[in-house]
């Protein structure tokens, strides 16, 4: 078996949201109100553990509220877990959407550098890949124009191109597949498959069964914050279909 790229142990996330703002003020001054009952509190992720080996392409599936997005957010370091530990062995890039940080007033070229930097690329690295990114995006002639004047298709193509040229060993991806018009969708799916077959470790969260089947080597099925099943995509699709019926 190849090396472990990602190890998640006893991971959970507890959300506690009080409807009463004065509870928050008490929290600010570290006062505990013994009589207040939490109005809205739940475990979005409930003590889950799993391992992912280098080169695996793992799809995370589950219904709304199953904890997919929470897992993604913790892996991406957007939020911090309540319990547990994650070990990531290799440079990790997390993509929850394409074009994060794109600014409408800036032109295409400036947005490539802005978005690249937000994604964790260095300036020299972006420069190196600049031509490739531009060529892939098919917006060469509009690079000096503010992106607010772009069509939504052009915008998305540019955004996807930057993300697709991230050079990380572990990719954590939300449903950012299949953007733009039909032609570009084909191109972006092909690109995602190429990334997945590059020997990189990919973890991607999806509602889309066919995307899971066609590109994953393994699937994790989440339900109410717990791992319900961890198997081949075919098996998971069967379970998924059974539950839906």
């Amino acid at each position: 078996m190849s090396a472990i790229a990602l190890q998640v142990s006893d991971l959970s996330k507890h959300y506690h949201r009080s409807v009463n703002p004065f509870d928050s003020i008490g929290e600010l001054f570290r006062i505990r109100n013994r009589y207040a009952k939490p109005d809205y509190s739940f475990w979005a992720l409930d003590h889950i553990s799993f391992k992912v080996h280098t080169g695996e392409v793992v799809g995370i599936v589950g219904k709304n509220g199953s904890g997919k997005s929470t897992l993604l957010k913790i892996l991406a370091r957007i939020t911090h877990p309540t319990t547990g530990r994650i070990e990531l062995h290799g440079r990790t890039a997390a993509l929850l959407e394409v074009g994060t940080g794109f600014h409408p007033e800036l032109n295409g070229r400036e947005n490539i550098f802005l978005n690249g930097a937000i994604l964790g690329m260095s300036r020299s690295e972006i420069k190196l890949k600049y031509d490739e990114i531009v060529a892939f995006s098919e917006v060469e002639s509009f690079l000096e124009m503010p992106v607010k004047h772009y069509s939504s298709g052009m915008y998305v193509r540019l955004a996807f191109s930057v993300a697709a040229h991230l050079d990380s060993e572990i990719m954590i991806v939300d449903e950012v597949l299949a953007v733009g018009d039909a032609d570009f969708q084909q191109k972006s799916i092909a690109k995602m498959k190429q990334i997945a077959s590059d020997g990189r470790t990919v973890l991607f969260v999806s509602h889309n069964k066919s995307a899971v089947l066609s590109s994953c080597t393994r699937c994790i099925f989440l339900e109410q914050g717990k791992i319900k099943a961890d198997d081949t995509p075919q098996k998971i699709t069967q379970i998924y279909n059974m539950i839906e019926e």
């Binding site: 913790i74 892996l75 994650i86 070990e87 990531l88 440079r91 890039a93 690329m121 260095s122």
Partner: peptide, 12 residues
């Protein structure tokens, strides 16, 4: 990449 080769996220 600016990002680190490995990373540990620990709740504690």
């Amino acid at each position: 990449m600016n990002l680190r080769r490995s990373l540990i996220i620990d709740a504690n």
